[in-house]
Amino acid sequence: MASAPENEKNASAPEKKTLTLKSMINNEEFVVDEHVALQSVTIKNMVDSDCAGDVIPVPTISGEILALVIEYCKNHANPSASEDDLKKADAGIVAKDIYTLIDLVLAANFLDIKGLLEVTSQKIADSIKDLPHQDVREIFGVENDYTPEEEAAVRAEHDWAFEGFP
């Protein structure tokens, strides 16, 4: 039983085109089926315009992040995956610390993968939504450019809005 589909797979294997994505950060290479890689609009445009060589160099994205991106693309290239399966798989991919998520969202943006950009943005939003503003500043490295008076005014507005409610 198990050997039949195996044979089939082998038989069709030569026709399956693959692409090699190479992280220019740590030179890690990933061999992926073309239809998986084509979920990236950026790569698709390269392939369509015949600009893609055997190895596609991907600058600014580390191997670790590229692996996540490819995992996402593989999941979403699988036509038999149910919506539920995909949701679970997506949740697994973005179950990372905020710094990894920032790298991931940059990669999704660079490679132009809309779905990944969305789930990663949502995850970042979810991870900061309950944090005090000081923590948000620190995590993102945002400089506080308020004058003390300005900050007090914004804080007063916030406190007035929420004080005294259970």
Binding site: V136, N144, Y146, E157, H158
Partner: peptide, 11 residues
């Protein structure tokens, strides 16, 4: 969250 997030920075 927006009232809190406004406190992060001017922009």
């Amino acid at each position: 969250c927006y009232l809190n997030m406004r406190l992060v920075a001017r922009n």
